[in-house]
């Protein structure tokens, strides 16, 4: 996830200062990890260095003095380019669950038990996310990001189900090699 571009995106609606940007980010992307203020500050400075944003004066009403930033034309072009680019589909095909399975077979462990436990953990997380999104009054942003995670967990689960059914073949293959 590119923090640069997300901050540029938040600046697109008008000049803003660092603290405000962090607050709006956390509000807009509730399921993402909250931004550290330091990260916001360094990212903004890099944006200025690259000519994508510029300082828009300072604001000091009731409290500490805050630097306002705004996006440049160059920044707007960069943002449009980034937003239009597709995200690489399935950037990696190896996964931790698969690695653990193979290791478990190699070390004469119980891969089936591991799969069951993993499946239970996935389901528990799915129940949490479902509870989160069905809480009355939850906003669409929360629902959509919960849905994103749910669909990925569901895909993992389906993969685990088909894998569990073919565990014997996998064991034979790994042991033979």
């Amino acid at each position: 996830m590119s923090t640069r571009h997300i901050l540029l995106g938040l600046l697109a609606s008008g000049p803003s200062h660092g603290y405000d940007l962090k607050r709006r980010h956390d509000e807009r992307f509730p399921q993402a990890r909250p931004l550290a203020y330091g990260q916001v500050y360094t990212t903004l400075q890099r944006l200025v260095r690259d000519g994508l944003a510029e300082v828009d004066g300072t604001e000091a009403e009731s409290g500490p003095e805050r630097t306002m930033y705004r996006s440049t034309d160059e920044g707007a072009r960069e943002l449009a380019k980034w937003a239009g680019e597709i995200a690489p589909p399935a950037p990696f095909v190896t996964n931790e669950i698969f690695a653990k399975l193979v290791v478990s077979i190699l070390a004469d462990g119980d891969p089936a038990a591991y799969l069951r436990a993993q499946r239970a953990a996935h389901m528990a997380r799915m129940r949490e996310l479902t509870a989160l999104k069905t809480t009355p009054g939850s906003d669409l942003a929360t629902v959509l990001s919960a849905d994103y995670a749910l669909n990925h967990l569901d895909a993992d689960l389906r993969w685990m189900n088909t894998t569990a059914a073919r565990l014997n073949t996998l064991t034979a293959e790994v042991d033979a090699a």
């Binding site: 069951r116 436990a117 239970a120 953990a121 389901m123 528990a124 997380r125 949490e128």
Partner: peptide, 15 residues
């Protein structure tokens, strides 16, 4: 074949 609720799930994870 299996029974699981939220608490059972987290137990298995910590193991």
């Amino acid at each position: 074949v299996s029974e699981a609720d939220a608490s059972a799930g987290s137990l298995e994870v910590s193991r």
